[in-house]
């Protein structure tokens, strides 16, 4: 059976700065683990239009709506605090 490529949405307020940093960190994390993933970077307001088939949402701004997909805050990639725990949480979701 072919393992499906997991889709991760990385979002922030404007898809300008912080989600680019978070997306890069998530990409590097997955690559290091040999995980083949698709990363979609967008604004928080655009999550709904990308949600189909997504396994995980990582965002550096608040996501008030429940999309029925696991959500992990990407703030540690910005502040540098709690990166290890966040990486573990992301991998737990992707490997589940």
């Amino acid at each position: 059976m072919q393992i499906e490529k997991k889709k991760i949405i990385v979002a922030c307020g404007g898809a300008v700065a912080t989600s680019t940093v978070a997306a890069n960190s998530v990409r590097a994390l997955c690559k290091g683990q040999g995980l083949d993933v698709e990363i979609v970077q967008c604004r928080v307001s655009e999550i709904g239009s990308h949600i189909h088939g997504a396994s995980l949402i990582v965002a550096t701004s608040k996501v008030s709506k429940d999309y029925g997909v696991p959500f992990i805050s990407g703030m540690p990639f910005i502040s540098g605090v709690g990166v290890v725990e966040t990486e573990k949480a992301i991998l737990d979701v992707l490997k589940a």
Binding site: A15, V16, A17, T18, T20, V21, N24, I78, S79, G80
Partner: peptide
């Protein structure tokens, strides 16, 4: 930050952070 292209200035944002 003044960013004119999100994909080109990742280095700047990461270096700043």
């Amino acid at each position: 930050m003044a960013i004119d292209n999100p994909n080109q200035h990742l280095d700047m944002v990461e270096a700043l952070l």
